[in-house]
Amino acid sequence: MAKKIESPCVSVCQLTGDLCIGCGRTIEEIRHWKAMKRPEKMKTVKRANKRLKKIPRD
């Protein structure tokens, strides 16, 4: 089991409302990432992935 959950940041920081269309996280999730414990990070990554799938891509 990996001890560290890597940030889903892909260095494409572009906010639409409160959502980053690069990684799928909300502003609050980005702000609190470093303070999150592993289970919370895992849930955040799952939510971000679901959001990214819903974003229309050209």
Rank of each mutant, 00 (worst) to 15 (best):
residue 34 K to D: 07
residue 48 A to P: 03
residue 34 K to I: 00
residue 32 H to K: 15
residue 47 R to E: 09
residue 15 L to C: 00
residue 6 E to M: 09
residue 8 P to T: 05
residue 27 I to M: 14
residue 31 R to V: 11
residue 24 G to W: 05
residue 12 V to M: 12
residue 44 T to H: 08
residue 11 S to R: 09
residue 17 G to L: 11
residue 44 T to E: 02
residue 57 R to N: 05
residue 22 G to V: 05
residue 18 D to T: 11
residue 41 K to Y: 06
residue 42 M to T: 05
residue 40 E to Y: 04
residue 26 T to G: 00
residue 19 L to F: 12
residue 13 C to K: 13
residue 4 K to S: 06
residue 1 M to R: 14
residue 49 N to K: 15
residue 28 E to Q: 11
residue 33 W to R: 15
residue 8 P to I: 01
residue 43 K to D: 11
residue 34 K to F: 01
residue 33 W to M: 06
residue 7 S to F: 03
residue 53 K to T: 00
residue 46 K to R: 12
residue 14 Q to Y: 12
residue 52 L to D: 03
residue 54 K to Q: 13
residue 46 K to W: 00
residue 55 I to W: 03
residue 25 R to L: 02
residue 9 C to D: 05
residue 56 P to W: 10
residue 23 C to S: 07
residue 44 T to R: 02
residue 12 V to D: 15
residue 38 R to T: 14
residue 50 K to Y: 00
residue 28 E to S: 12
residue 6 E to P: 08
residue 28 E to L: 10
residue 47 R to M: 04
residue 13 C to Y: 05
residue 44 T to K: 09
residue 27 I to E: 11
residue 13 C to H: 07
residue 50 K to R: 13
residue 44 T to P: 01
residue 3 K to Y: 06
residue 48 A to V: 02
residue 40 E to G: 06
residue 3 K to I: 08
residue 17 G to H: 01
residue 27 I to P: 09
residue 21 I to S: 03
residue 4 K to A: 06
residue 46 K to N: 00
residue 41 K to M: 14
residue 26 T to K: 11
residue 20 C to Q: 06
residue 20 C to I: 08
residue 26 T to E: 10
residue 56 P to E: 10
residue 56 P to M: 02
residue 12 V to E: 14
residue 7 S to G: 03
residue 28 E to M: 11
residue 34 K to L: 03
residue 56 P to G: 05
residue 41 K to D: 10
residue 40 E to L: 13
residue 24 G to I: 05
residue 8 P to K: 08
residue 40 E to N: 10
residue 32 H to A: 11
residue 38 R to W: 10
residue 40 E to T: 14
residue 21 I to Y: 10
residue 9 C to N: 05
residue 36 M to K: 14
residue 50 K to L: 04
residue 18 D to W: 04
residue 54 K to V: 02
residue 23 C to L: 04
residue 46 K to Y: 01
residue 52 L to N: 02
residue 50 K to W: 00
residue 44 T to V: 09
residue 29 E to T: 06
residue 27 I to H: 11
residue 57 R to H: 11
residue 27 I to G: 11
residue 35 A to L: 15
